[in-house]
Simulated assay, not measured.
Amino acid sequence: MKEDVRNADSRTSDGPRDSQKVQVIERAFGLLETLVSFRGSATAGELKEATGLAGPTVHRLLHTLVGLGMVHQLPDRRYALGANLVPLGEGATRQLGGLAVPQMQSLVRELGESVNMAAMESEMVVYIAQAPSPHSMRMFTEVGRRVYLHSTGVGKAMLSTMEPKRVREVLASTGMPAMTPKTLTKPEALVEQLPVIAAQGYAIDDEEQELGVRCLAVPIPKGPTRMGLSVSGPTARMDDAFIRHAVPLMSRTAGEIGRMFSRR
């Protein structure tokens, strides 16, 4: 492996900026991304076939990644993502939320209600940024709070971007506990809503997470993971007229945030 790094550096040290890449690092991250695509675990042979890398290269990379805790070898000798990736991913997600705060604050000025940004982590919604409403009666969601996908507008918006089979897998994994009497608790009832949500481009949590609170949400396109933008407030202020006014503004802001992330 040391030889690979040395050769890559010597080949590219005098070249243009785009060629100054360390091949072994590209291969290691490519292997991790491939492992993610297996949604669980994979054998070294499966990873070799999927990446097109030589068998010895795959084994050297896996050995190093296991030593770093980035990959874990299971008792059946298959490989899965390691625990040391979790804090890296969570830290990166929180930083992405901070980058979007200016756009979120602009949306608060236009709508007057609290704006939240969330991402999907471990089949749950985690809030990664908030811009609070100027109203004395406003919704506050702590950054870092984790909630269920099925009971939140932003969770439904994320689910609407997924295949129905994957949605059912997620719901079976997390369960669908009732947060309020209005929470949907049957998978099929929610799955039936998702094509409508996808077609209209937004989702609503109508007192399904908290009584007296309505949440309007849109997915963020082109994000590095499934992400969404939501606006929440008391049901009395979040009426149909507000929703008609807010959706185009939210979609515009979500698009701006997605384009910002895709350029990084």
Results as ranks from 00 to 15, higher is better:
residue 1 M to T: 02
residue 3 E to T: 13
residue 3 E to H: 12
residue 3 E to I: 11
residue 6 R to F: 08
residue 7 N to D: 03
residue 8 A to P: 00
residue 8 A to M: 01
residue 9 D to V: 06
residue 11 R to G: 03
residue 17 R to M: 01
residue 29 F to D: 04
residue 30 G to M: 05
residue 40 G to C: 00
residue 49 E to H: 08
residue 50 A to K: 14
residue 59 H to C: 06
residue 60 R to Q: 14
residue 64 T to I: 09
residue 67 G to S: 13
residue 74 L to V: 00
residue 75 P to G: 03
residue 76 D to F: 00
residue 82 G to W: 09
residue 83 A to E: 12
residue 83 A to P: 02
residue 85 L to H: 04
residue 90 E to K: 02
residue 92 A to Q: 07
residue 93 T to Q: 11
residue 102 P to A: 02
residue 105 Q to K: 09
residue 110 E to K: 14
residue 115 V to P: 01
residue 115 V to H: 11
residue 118 A to S: 15
residue 123 E to R: 14
residue 125 V to Q: 13
residue 126 V to S: 14
residue 132 P to T: 07
residue 134 P to I: 13
residue 134 P to M: 10
residue 141 T to M: 09
residue 142 E to F: 15
residue 145 R to K: 11
residue 146 R to H: 10
residue 148 Y to T: 01
residue 152 T to H: 14
residue 152 T to L: 09
residue 153 G to P: 00
residue 155 G to W: 15
residue 155 G to T: 05
residue 156 K to E: 04
residue 157 A to Y: 15
residue 161 T to P: 01
residue 162 M to C: 03
residue 164 P to L: 06
residue 171 L to T: 04
residue 174 T to I: 02
residue 185 T to G: 01
residue 187 P to N: 07
residue 188 E to S: 00
residue 188 E to I: 00
residue 191 V to K: 04
residue 195 P to L: 06
residue 196 V to P: 01
residue 197 I to F: 14
residue 197 I to Q: 10
residue 212 G to I: 02
residue 219 P to I: 03
residue 224 P to A: 08
residue 225 T to N: 07
residue 226 R to C: 03
residue 229 L to M: 10
residue 231 V to H: 09
residue 235 T to C: 04
residue 235 T to E: 12
residue 242 F to M: 08
residue 243 I to A: 10
residue 243 I to P: 03
residue 250 M to Q: 13
residue 250 M to H: 15
residue 252 R to N: 12
residue 255 G to D: 08
residue 258 G to T: 12
residue 259 R to Y: 13
residue 260 M to A: 10
residue 264 R to Y: 11
